[in-house]
Write a protein that binds this DNA or RNA. Structure first.
Ligand SMILES: [Mn+2]
Ligand SMILES: [Mn+2]
Ligand SMILES: [Zn+2]
Ligand SMILES: [Zn+2]
Lengths: 144, 144
DNA sequence: ATTAATACTAATAATCATTATCATATACAC
DNA sequence: GTGTATATGATAATGATTATTAGTATTAAT
């Protein structure tokens, strides 16, 4: 179990139950993946067979509210969760419209845009950027 | 009724029923707003009292699939529709976390990011950018 | 330790947006 | 006008998420 995370839990006087530990482990085991609540449930059941879906939702929500997880919605209308980038700026996503794979990228050129909006009187606290297109593999396949 | 739009409808051999006309008119009457299916239904009923919710969903979906409408989801877990920017690049959104108002902006600095991704082998067909923060009015109120 | 208060859980019902079904109605090409 | 593919309204079904509830585990106070 990650040290920073357990510290955060204590700060928010948040009890570390078996269920929560199971959910956290699932997320840690799946770095880089974007899991739905149902997917988390399935994996968590292998560690804790009678964990319920409501507990999974509650736990994911709590972890997201303390920025341990990052919650976002891709095409398909359901939320997905992933481990949050700790110090660095949260990365952004490229969704392949063919295979559905989600790629990630780190570059961030949005600071200039943010300054422009701030010059107009807004205070920006977060942004979310998604690209949709075709990944290199799918383009190759489609060429044939 | 907009000329370009009726042309598009013909191209997709799309029958022009009263219901579809009503939905389209609602969208044209609400340029700049972001309406949910339920909101469209309410307004459409004033033109066509027995239009059903399923027809509204079907029509919105079709109009979006032929790029007459733009469909997106903000916080709140339901899709919203608005007239699509015809020639120019679809604008982006700033959502105020206090009052919920959705502001729009046109600036687009994403071309450089897109080129970088294309250099990596991706083909980008669309992108979506949302900012979350506080609008000038809410900041003013909060200061007091 | 015993009790009382609090936090957490599983099961399941309820909700809400969206989609599917199906019998009837309509647009439009001929 | 007729035929037929398409569209419609009513409503059931679905799928994701949230709320409820009764029971269990933890903690805090005696
Ligand atoms: Mn990611
Ligand atoms: Mn808009
Ligand atoms: Zn792909
Ligand atoms: Zn505001």
């Amino acid at each position: 179990m990650d040290k920073k995370i357990t510290e955060k839990l204590k700060e928010n006087n948040y009890k570390l139950t078996e269920q929560r530990e199971a959910v956290l482990e699932v997320m840690l085991d799946n770095r880089g993946k974007h899991l739905s609540a149902e997917e988390v449930l399935q994996e968590a059941k292998q560690k804790m067979p009678n964990i319920g879906i409501a507990t999974v939702y509650r736990t994911l929500e709590k972890l997201a509210s303390m920025d341990i997880l990052y919650k976002t919605m891709f095409e398909g209308g359901k939320f997905r969760y992933e481990l949050s980038d700790e110090d660095t700026h949260q990365h952004h996503h490229i969704v392949c419209l063919k295979c559905g794979h989600i790629y990630e990228f780190e570059e961030d050129l949005l600071n200039e845009l943010e300054s422009r909006l701030e010059a107009r009187g807004f205070e920006i606290v977060d942004h979310e950027l998604k690209f949709y297109g075709y990944c290199p593999e799918c383009r190759e396949k489609m060429r044939k």
